[in-house]
Nucleic acid binder design. Structure first.
Lengths: 131, 131
DNA sequence: ATGAATTTGAGAGTTGACTCTCAATATCCC
DNA sequence: GGGATATTGAGAGTCAACTCTCAAATTCAT
C-alpha cells in the first residue's frame, strides 16, 4: 500500500507548475513555501517514487546536476546559461538526429543541449555587465 | 619548470591512441599496462595539466562520469550505451541546432547525445542476451 | 475514532570523484 | 654525475550528492 501524503501532494504540485526542469534543492526550496519542515530526504524519496511511476522524468544535462520535470511536458531540449546556470526549454527539435548513430546501434533517446548566455545575462535589464 | 616524466608520456600516448573518450579509471587501467604502479592521483594530475595546456578536452555526458579525449579529435557527438556504459563517437553533426535557441540567447556550444544500446549489446557475438 | 502500516524529519552514514600530503623518486641543467 | 627542483605513489582527506536509520507522526481501511 502507498499513502498519499501532504508532502507528496505538494511535491507533485511543484512539478506540475514548474516551467523548467528543477534540481532537488530547488524543488525542496519551492515546496518549503508550503511545508517549511520538509526534509531533503523526502524530496529524494519522492523523486525516486515519481520516477518509478513515470510521473516525472530526469533531465540529464552535461555539466550540471540532475534536473527533474513533469513527464507531462513535451519532448524538448535545453539551453544552459553558463552565467546564471539556469536551464531553459528550447522549442522544437532537430530532425535526423537518430541517423547519426552507426549501423547496428539502437537509439532509444536523445538529448540536445545548447550552452551560452541567456537573454537576461547577454543583455541585463538593469545592471551593467562590464564587471 | 615542468618535467616530462615517464608517466605523462604514457598518459599522453593513451589519449593519442584512444578511439573514444575515456574516464580517469579507464585511462589509469590502460596506462598501467606500461606502468603498473601508476597512481590514480597521477592520472588526475595529468588530466588537469593536459586540460590547461589544451592537449585534451573534457566530454561532459549526461548521466555519466566525465570523460576525456585528445583535443586533436574533431568536433563530434556521442552515443552512450545504456548496457555497457561505454561512449562511442558519432560521425557527423546536425545542421541548424543553434537556431533552436530563443531570441536574444547567445549560443556558444552544443552537445548532442544519443542513448540506447550499442551494436555489441544489441546483437552479442557470443552470448545470449535472454537474461 | 482506532490501530496497523506507511511515511516523515533530521542527522549520521555512504558513495564516488577527486585532491592533498609528504617522503621517496625521477628529471634535467650544468 | 651532482644536486636543485619537480613529480610520484599511496593513503588520508574532502566534498557534494544522495541514502539510511529510527523514533515520531501521518494515513487510511474499518
Amino acid at each position: 500500500m502507498m499513502y498519499l501524503t501532504q508532502q507528496k501532494r505538494v511535491l507533485g504540485a511543484v512539478f506540475e507548475r514548474a516551467n523548467r526542469p528543477l534540481t532537488p534543492p530547488e524543488i525542496c526550496e519551492e515546496a518549503r513555501k508550503e511545508i517549511p519542515a520538509l526534509s531533503i530526504a523526502t524530496v529524494y524519496r519522492a523523486i525516486k517514487q515519481f520516477l518509478e511511476e513515470g510521473q516525472i522524468r530526469a533531465v540529464e544535462v552535461p555539466g550540471a546536476a540532475p534536473h527533474y520535470e513533469s513527464a507531462a511536458r513535451h519532448h524538448h531540449h535545453f539551453f544552459v546559461c553558463r552565467e546564471c546556470k539556469r536551464l531553459f526549454d528550447l522549442i522544437g527539435c532537430v530532425r535526423g538526429v537518430g541517423s547519426l548513430a552507426p549501423e547496428g546501434f539502437r537509439v532509444r533517446q536523445h538529448e540536445i543541449v545548447l550552452y551560452g548566455e541567456c537573454a537576461a545575462c547577454t543583455n541585463p535589464p538593469n545592471k551593467s555587465r562590464t564587471v
